[in-house]
Design a protein around this nucleic acid. Structure first.
Lengths: 229, 229
DNA sequence: TCAAAAGTGTTTGCAATACACCCATGC
DNA sequence: GCATGGGTGTATTGCAAACACTTTTGA
């Protein structure tokens, strides 16, 4: 079933900046466009809003349709409205940003896409349309977010080491952090539960694994915190 | 000239939450609606976007048209898209928030409005449509803003006392602050220039007046700061 | 002389920073 | 036994918080 038959709003789209963390690298999900304009180029997953849905719903649907990504945290970022941002006609686009753990999502191309793939955030990405600005704004928002809300639950495997968490923070912020201070502050938040499990098959002392205390995590997410990492 | 003749986008509007500070009270600008729906009720100034303008431009134009407010700081807040937020048809609305000094703006009703007036933010306001949510989101954003960016330049007269500035902060945050600590921190930012002028005709010791060092103010606005007021 | 707000410093505690060595493991 | 990353504690510093009295002015 094509989106067209579902009554789209022709001048309103949603674009999603989906961040994932894998192999110590922060990545962004792009899809290869099946149709014109910009056919064949790698773009942010996006699509038109239906007459029957709110923007949040559209974002969820579009991510599922274009790349098979489901059940994730989404947050509205900004609305882009340059007159010529889309070449065929005037379309304004609402940007969303999302965090997921790539390992939990098997990408597959969907409607309007021939492929879906992760790209390194720090690599050189040639975005079509105004997706460069959209991406930049979303990345910026992610960097703000990490300093006053807990983050990681959405991006890491269920059990992880403190070093993994620190790597995640370092990737997002683009700076390196002091190990001892990082641990002190993170553990001080009491949002991690230490497990009696350790890394396996590593050529060095095995790191203890932790999981998120989901309840505390949610509380912190609501009330936020305020420290320098 | 009516907006209709300028080719509006019928499903896309902008609503503005304009904050002003006067007589130690934080206020929001509302306009009285001339037409249906919600004729006669006090609403956020808003209007439809033209096919020929970006959202930021629309916000500027709409504020000027509805209430004669010009030349102000505007910032996009959020896009509201509930299917039934507007009763006549599906309209999504992009909210902006703005800060102005009421004394510098002579309100007068414009297109689609029969009146324009300031309302106390802390009073009971009966908003039409989903303007309650829009207002709440904007106020929330203002409260965030005040903690990590300088604010006040847009809301205060050119020359003002430290007490006025403190009152402004207290109004926005809805809590009272310690005078000595407030002064230490504000002066520490080096964004104020002390003048050799003082309050006049007050029945107590006259307060020194300050003005903003616009350059430092702008620098701080870009790089932000991070302290608890 | 009283009322009302302006103006001013110090102490205390906490949280951020900087920093270096021993531990466990696989090869 | 060596290379690799895991794990740990302390001293210092700077900033936030709490707090009360004197000064100026007009009525």
């Amino acid at each position: 079933m094509s989106t067209a038959s579902k009554q789209i709003i022709k001048n309103l789209s949603v674009d999603c900046v989906v961040f994932g963390f894998e192999k110590n690298s922060l990545e962004v999900l792009l899809i290869k466009r099946k149709g014109n304009p910009e056919k064949g180029s790698w773009a942010l997953p996006g699509g038109f809003v239906l007459k029957t849905e709110a923007l949040d719903e559209a974002a969820v649907r579009i991510l599922e349709e274009t790349s098979n990504v489901k059940n994730i945290y989404l947050e509205q970022v900004h609305t882009f409205s340059d007159i010529n941002r889309f070449p065929l006609r005037r379309v304004i686009s609402v940007a969303y940003f999302a965090l997921i753990n790539p390992e939990k999502h098997f990408l597959k191309p969907g409607i309007d896409t021939t492929d879906a793939k992760w790209f390194e955030v720090n690599g050189d990405i040639a975005f079509p349309f105004d997706h460069e600005s959209i991406f930049a704004k979303a990345l910026n928002q992610l960097r703000q977010r990490v300093r006053n809300k807990p983050i990681g639950f959405e991006l890491l495997p269920e059990r992880f080491s403190l070093t993994q968490l620190q790597n995640l923070y370092e990737c997002i912020l683009g700076e390196s952090l002091d190990k001892r201070n990082f641990r002190k502050r993170i553990l001080g938040l009491k949002m991690l539960i230490p497990l009696n499990d350790f890394e396996k098959d590593v050529a060095h002392r095995a790191a203890r694994l932790y999981k998120f205390d989901f309840k505390t995590y949610q509380v912190l997410k609501n009330k936020g915190f305020n420290f320098q990492l």
